[in-house]
Design a protein around this nucleic acid. Sequence first.
DNA 1: ACCTTACCTTCCACTATTGACATGTCGCCA
DNA 2: TGGCGACATGTCAATAGTGGAAGGTAAGGT
Lengths: 182, 182
Amino acid sequence: MSIVEGKVGGMSLRHALLGLLSDHPASGYDLLKLFDTSLANVWPATQSQIYTELTKLADAGLITVSTEGPRGRKEYALTDGGLAELRHWLVETPPQRTTRSDVLLRVFFLSVLTPAQGHAYLAGLAAMSAEEHDALRALHDSIDWDDGGLSVHGRIALEYGLRFNTMRREWAEWAAEQIKPG
Amino acid sequence: MSIVEGKVGGMSLRHALLGLLSDHPASGYDLLKLFDTSLANVWPATQSQIYTELTKLADAGLITVSTEGPRGRKEYALTDGGLAELRHWLVETPPQRTTRSDVLLRVFFLSVLTPAQGHAYLAGLAAMSAEEHDALRALHDSIDWDDGGLSVHGRIALEYGLRFNTMRREWAEWAAEQIKPG
DNA sequence: ACCTTACCTTCCACTATTGACATGTCGCCA
DNA sequence: TGGCGACATGTCAATAGTGGAAGGTAAGGT
């Protein structure tokens, strides 16, 4: 049974924070950085959201705070309760996928444009995706995989980015074929 | 610095509604159904959200309403302004991808479980994905593609679902390999 | 000393989204 | 007649997420 009250299913920001803290203690700022790098493609979050949630988490006893002076950095660490909550979320609550894709939604309605416009749009989309893909692959290639250069987390996130972008690119190309005039 | 500033933003529910209405007029209930079928994998929305947004859209003059009696069905139709807004959104506002994946986030933190638990979790995930994939493929195969059985929208949505699930399944299998004990 | 550049936290107003609850019409069938 | 299920809309409270503004600290260079 969950330690946290309330029956809401979502709240994954909370668990993302607990998950990051399960590795080692960190400040809000550290976590913010991690969200902007490792988790950017998986669960984006803003600064205001992170600090707010950290306060709630501390109030709920899932993490502890240690301050360095009255206005200084605060370091947060996972408590036993927090780890339990993280495990509970992982194994006992069903994943719910609510993927909202702005990009896909656009392509869905491309028929309101002229064929030329639609085609140009898709070409642009494919190019953008290809760029992202190349950038990711370059990053991927620059890492010495046998040297522990990246944690398993980072490696998985990277690979996910690669695969995700490959799919997006291929899909945009396929969609372009479907809408092509003639 | 960009010339165009001001509120850029999500608000894609609004455009999803405009897009659906660009095909033909419909009631809130009709749109609700469309969201539950065609758009379920692209931009999920609830009933309350849809009715609320339709009212706002009508207030903004982007759609018109025609009622059938005091408590009956209301039919909404796109205005010229609405179509212009839809086209504007498509061609002039940059797509912003904010994909939040509950599933991926979970896999990201699987290391807090025992290897056996983690492995079991991934196996379950892969199985779930495979089921969805099979269901989608069955649906796909049941359609007579040469008979106009599905609009280009529906076809694209279906194909997207297929590709998305294929990717999820393959990815889950790949991730299982990475975390496998030994 | 002054300035810049990280580092670090808090607060606020707003929009989006969820998950109920409430209400009513209509046609069908036992 | 009474109930059931599909059709259909409206409203609410609560939570999640966005996009800033506004601070304060600490270290290093000129």
